[in-house]
Write a protein that binds this DNA or RNA. Structure first.
Lengths: 337, 337
DNA sequence: TTGAAAGCGCTAACAT
DNA sequence: ATGTTAGCGCTTTCAA
């Protein structure tokens, strides 16, 4: 069923049907009603590929989300949606897997849907100059920057927290409570991504406090999920029972780690203090509540939109914004005796 | 930059470029390499709207996910993805908000992308015959059926758990431990959706055990999130302190409720036993671990694919599959003294 | 107010 | 092995 079929059934031309479909004013009420009636009767649905193909430009902005399961993303997306709406644009969200190439996916969207700009939620920290050339519209990296690549600042925009420094702050909070034997639970120490950055922050904090890095206290899970975090934490606990504090690079992993600690008969925070970074809702509800550095989800959603719209409208060039986290005091930390 | 530009730069025709793009064999290595080189140099990205428009059919199947944040969906999606892949099809996932119309969104996808079939993950329980007519391909409702609509069984396919009965079983587990004063925490008792079904199961269990329904023990949160669940639970606890057990319609809400119980100085399960339905990973890691009826995520993902593929290939007609849950023993229930 | 016709970018016959 | 061309379904001039 195409627009042509509708036209024939109504005894009008395709352009008239198109006008009705697009709410153009210059169609007589009689004709409009007839067309609408037929459309409804035959359950006609326009082909958006054809529509997109013919349109020369839109007020659409794309959002490419890499890593569907990420609970922090889930919270940021609605914020972005509202901010884009408020700015007079329409958001087109596209989810991809972590294995997929967000630049490629974004470029295809831009091209097919004639997008004005792109927000990338989660992506690689090491783009090359060549790679970003597929994008010929303004774009903003949200939650990540180019820490492991060689882009110059003027070549892209980003909104992030300072992962390394925030990790450092988290560990310093532990050190401030007298802890010296501090373990870390992370995905990988060399993923050229968030895990590596936060590991570096951990190292810095130790160094600044004159604590020697103990590699045996660095526990890699190899993946970003609760099951592996739990298993890994168990391993660490079996291997070592002399650390008094733990820094975990993400809330969800921290919650699994806390259960592992519980299961070997130790208590949080009495035996082991735990701190993490993220601030997902769940971590406030568990017992004991997790002390964590909360990412500013509102700003993390609104700032990219502000930057992107400024670039699209030529009001400003590219920018890099680094957002601060806030400590959410839980019940998972105590001072060492 | 279009296929025509590439053709000109290479001194070949558009069809040759198209052949290269689509990996057709009959292109000389020399020409192919030159085309590939230019494509790479100019960062050409094909316009998928144009591609979709011209293609007459595909081996693509659509997945419309309604309600991005749902943690259970997050787990089922990869299962569906793999099952579709194994069946020789390609999955095209599309996320929409809970306010949006999944049938409409699905119909548009089908039409623009020439899909062979559709899986709807989360949707309305009350379609009318008229409404489903927009879909002219086989489709399967995943996690929901037509409990509040008037469709005949032959008009659609579905894979669900028996929400009413499973809720009943959950409450009966509580009753089996001697509980008589059993509260329920739910979104709404009349949402024509999952919440209402599980409420009905709660009522049935009470009735079968000869326990009179106490409306004051029925606590509606009004929304499906942890914050409202926590607040609502606090209200219930302030109003009543005589119930010994609680049934919550979803794991995430149950975890918030458990924190509320903790915060008023009561203990789970000593003072109040808690049970829920869902089986999200998180509920196994909290302390005390939540006892819950686990939805069979593997089957919930694979069965819809089986049904859909059978329908697409004409091997079988529509089907309705009801999957059983399994009890995951946690630490949130104990017998009444 | 309505219709005819061009053309968006691509693929797939059909020629050569 | 490569080129020519029709046409996918729609919107949008331009004419009437």
């Amino acid at each position: 069923m195409t627009i042509k079929d509708i036209a024939e059934r109504c005894g009008v031309s395709v352009s008239t049907v198109s006008r009705v479909l697009n709410d153009h004013p210059d169609v007589s009420k009689m004709v409009r009603d007839r067309v609408l009636k037929v459309i409804d009767e035959v359950h006609y649905v326009p082909n958006s590929s054809a529509r997109d193909l013919v349109k020369t430009q839109s007020d659409d902005v794309g959002l490419v989300v890499r890593g569907a399961g990420n609970p922090f993303f889930t919270e940021v997306i609605p914020v972005i949606e509202q901010a884009i709406e408020r700015a007079g644009y329409t958001l087109l969200t596209h989810q991809i897997n972590t294995e997929d190439d967000e630049l490629r996916a974004g470029a295809e969207l831009v091209r097919s849907k004639k997008l004005k700009g792109l927000i990338l939620l989660g992506g690689c920290f090491d783009y090359s100059e060549e790679q970003i050339k597929v994008l010929d519209v303004p774009f903003v990296c949200c939650t990540y920057g180019n820490s492991f690549g060689k882009l110059r600042d003027i070549q892209y925009s980003s909104v992030t927290i300072d992962d390394m420094n925030e990790a450092r702050k988290a560990v310093e909070l532990l050190i401030g409570q007298g802890h010296r034997k501090i373990a870390i639970l992370l995905d990988s120490i060399c993923d050229s991504s968030i895990s590596e950055l936060r590991y570096l922050g951990y190292c810095q904090a130790l160094k600044a406090a004159g604590i020697e890095l103990d590699d045996d206290l660095v526990q890699e899970t190899g993946a970003f999920n609760m099951e592996d975090a739990y298993r890994s934490m168990k391993e660490l606990l079996q291997r070592r029972d002399d650390f008094t504090a733990l820094f975990v690079i993400a809330d969800s992993m921290a919650l699994a780690a806390m259960r592992a600690i519980h299961d070997v008969g130790k208590q949080v925070p009495k035996d082991i203090s735990v701190i993490a970074i993220d601030g997902i809702p769940m971590s406030a509800y568990v017992v004991p509540a997790l002390t964590t550095l909360v990412q500013p989800k509102k700003e993390m959603g609104e700032e990219p939109v502000r930057i992107l719209v400024d670039m699209i409208e030529g009001k400003a060039g590219n920018r890099h914004v680094i957002l601060p986290t806030t400590v959410r005091e839980g019940e998972s930390i105590c001072a060492i005796r």
